[in-house]
Amino acid sequence: MLVLFLCDSLLQAHKGSGIKLHCLRDDQPFLSCLCIASGGGLVMPNPQSAVGLAVRALATEPLVQESLANNPAVRVLVLQAAMSTARCRSHGEQFPNITRDRRQSKLVKNLETQWTICDLEDVIMNSAQGTPVLEGCQLRHPQGIYGQRGDHLHFRQDIAIAAGDELLKAARRTALAKYPDMQTDGSILLVLAAGWNADNATIDCLDSDGHAWRKAEIVALAELCALNGHPASVFRAKFKQLLRRLQGEHTAFLLQPVADIQAIDPSKATEVQHTLGHKLNSPVKHRRADSLMWQRESKRQCRKTEADKLADLTGVPREIAQSIIDAMGSVESALQHPMFQPNPRVDMGSFKQTLRCQVEVINLDELDDAAAHD
């Protein structure tokens, strides 16, 4: 069984950053492929993202390719973001925004571990009884796994590798309890354990570089969860498609409601892979938000919603936004209009303010009354 573990510096003791194949034994031996994006996120590069490393691992690691030879199904598990450092106990949640963002998606919450890293530490310290999957942990230490001087975010150096191994084993045991057939059907496990580094990034507007990494992280997480049970080839295509979507401005991510991202039945895998392949081959300027992940609405409802989005993004009154949507057809088309083209690298917040100052609202009823008296 292959465990593809996508994380940030959580497992930096195993490798500072990059790809590492790591063999472990729990009830039986298993291979884990660690994609460690220290300083980055699931899709946020700094300089690498975990998804970017996964794409490289799938293309270059022979043992990983061997595990994927029959295009097995991929089961998804999300490591809970809350209570992920010992400092959370005394100073409150260390990544409150990421934790709150995940609550927007029932899909993500359903695939998230019921236990936290602090729960694992409690078991290691013998200070509390954990869930059955955590009670299988063999590591014990009275000081726990944190406490490195000057570093409250990472495992203590003297125990970091052992703690990371127990985390990997606990994730695998959790998946086997959730997906009992994994032992026999040849499927692989994808653990998503990244995103914390985007906690202070923007989610509702573009930054000065045209990015909204916090929104991109939660959208990417939800879209990967939506593919739970699909074959590995679909995930490979999805990884690549996410990376390409992130190359330009993140406007499409801003417009995408996280709550609308729904699970896609694995029976539609061929259709999904075809769609992802088409998007990968399309020019950058023609890319659109992945409509497969959006709930279907009536045309009238979509237009009303898009008018609200355009008004929120640009600051124009909603009535004007509706007229623009009626003329242009979509938010993305409207944003290409010269009136909405900001100077390069302008901050979206100042862009909104500029538009508010320049737009004059004309009352058509008053104009009609004036014409009647002439």
Rank of each mutant, 00 (worst) to 15 (best):
151 D>I: 01
163 A>D: 12
124 I>E: 13
223 E>K: 07
138 Q>Y: 06
115 W>Y: 04
141 H>Y: 15
26 D>K: 01
136 G>I: 01
258 V>R: 03
231 P>Y: 14
361 V>I: 06
43 V>Q: 07
339 M>T: 02
54 A>V: 01
140 R>D: 07
64 V>I: 09
271 E>V: 08
1 M>C: 03
174 T>R: 08
50 A>T: 00
299 K>T: 05
228 N>K: 04
12 Q>H: 07
283 P>L: 13
92 G>Y: 13
73 A>V: 02
158 D>I: 08
285 K>R: 05
275 T>S: 15
208 S>N: 10
246 L>P: 01
34 L>M: 10
106 K>S: 10
162 A>N: 09
282 S>D: 05
16 G>P: 00
152 H>A: 12
178 K>Y: 05
64 V>T: 02
89 R>Y: 04
210 G>S: 05
341 Q>A: 11
263 A>M: 04
250 H>F: 12
194 A>F: 09
364 L>N: 05
130 G>L: 12
248 G>K: 09
150 G>C: 05
57 A>M: 04
174 T>S: 15
304 K>R: 11
314 T>R: 00
212 A>W: 13
183 Q>C: 07
181 D>E: 15
171 A>F: 04
115 W>D: 04
76 V>S: 07
187 S>T: 07
51 V>Q: 08
240 K>N: 10
366 E>F: 11
141 H>N: 15
122 D>E: 15
253 F>N: 05
133 V>M: 13
131 T>W: 15
374 D>K: 10
48 Q>H: 10
176 L>G: 00
59 A>Q: 11
109 K>V: 05
217 E>W: 09
113 T>S: 06
256 Q>Y: 11
148 Q>T: 09
285 K>D: 11
296 R>D: 07
310 L>E: 06
317 P>Y: 12
287 R>K: 14
370 A>S: 10
32 S>F: 13
122 D>Q: 10
374 D>F: 15
45 P>K: 12
17 S>E: 14
209 D>A: 10
84 S>L: 03
310 L>R: 00
180 P>F: 09
132 P>R: 04
342 P>V: 04
33 C>S: 05
176 L>M: 08
354 T>L: 07
96 P>I: 05
50 A>H: 03
355 L>W: 09
137 C>S: 06
26 D>E: 14
355 L>Y: 01
66 E>I: 01
29 P>H: 04
294 W>Y: 07
127 S>P: 00
74 V>F: 06
369 D>G: 00
169 K>W: 01
343 N>S: 07
119 D>K: 03
363 N>G: 00
282 S>I: 03
133 V>S: 14
29 P>N: 02
353 Q>N: 05
63 L>K: 03
303 R>D: 15
313 L>F: 14
108 V>Y: 04
155 F>T: 02
204 D>S: 15
124 I>K: 09
24 L>V: 02
277 G>K: 07
179 Y>K: 03
279 K>M: 15
341 Q>D: 08
115 W>V: 00
242 L>V: 03
290 D>A: 12
317 P>R: 01
221 L>N: 01
151 D>V: 02
45 P>F: 13
